[in-house]
Amino acid sequence: MARDEGGATDSPAAAYVFRVTVRIDPEVEGVWTEPDTFETTVVRAADSPGDPGWLYFRDNLWRGECGDEAHMRAVAEDALGMPVDAIDFRELRTTQAYLDDLRAAMADDLVEFNAETVDAALSKYLGSSIHVTDDI
């Protein structure tokens, strides 16, 4: 995403939203935090349909939840640089235009999703966790 002169980033057309429990684990003896965990929202920009990485939902989600929580915790830990105790998929936040492009790309190769319709494929991976909005 590009940054403007003020440092703000252009909004992506869609993003995956997760609720994550992060653990603060000080490395200095005699230092601790209270509480030692907190919840935060982590947002990952969705790649445009057809671009590398656009199948993120297919590879990581199942029925609107993380398909492999341990793997997703490890991915979040790498991205955040701190231990992650729990991760929960919340939604694909998307513009209508992105969703239309996603549906079209999926329709071009339903075999890829082992589904007979685009709606069935979307439900299989994202459940009912699609939030169409102009404010990503």
Rank of each mutant, 00 (worst) to 15 (best):
V20D: 02
T21W: 01
D101A: 08
G64D: 02
T95V: 01
V20K: 05
T94K: 03
T95A: 04
L110Q: 07
D109T: 13
R63Y: 14
E27N: 06
A104I: 03
A79P: 06
L110T: 07
V17S: 03
A79W: 12
P52C: 09
T41G: 02
W32E: 10
P26Y: 11
R19P: 02
L110C: 14
F89Q: 01
T40M: 15
R19G: 00
F57C: 01
G81Q: 05
V42K: 05
D68L: 07
I24T: 04
E91S: 06
S48V: 05
L92E: 06
H71C: 08
L61H: 09
T95Y: 03
A97R: 07
A46E: 09
V28T: 06
P49F: 10
T95D: 05
D101W: 02
D109Q: 11
D108A: 15
A86R: 15
E77F: 05
A45F: 04
D47T: 08
D68C: 04
D88I: 02
D88F: 05
M72T: 03
F113T: 10
F89N: 01
F38L: 14
D100P: 06
G30C: 07
T33W: 14
R93W: 03
V43R: 13
E27A: 12
F113V: 03
T37N: 08
E91T: 08
E34F: 12
T41R: 09
E27T: 11
W32N: 14
Q96C: 08
L99G: 10
V28R: 13
V42W: 14
V43M: 13
R19Y: 06
A70T: 06
D68P: 00
D51M: 15
R93D: 02
E91M: 03
D88Q: 13
E77L: 00
L80Y: 06
G30D: 09
R63C: 13
R73F: 03
E29Q: 14
V42N: 02
N114W: 04
G81W: 10
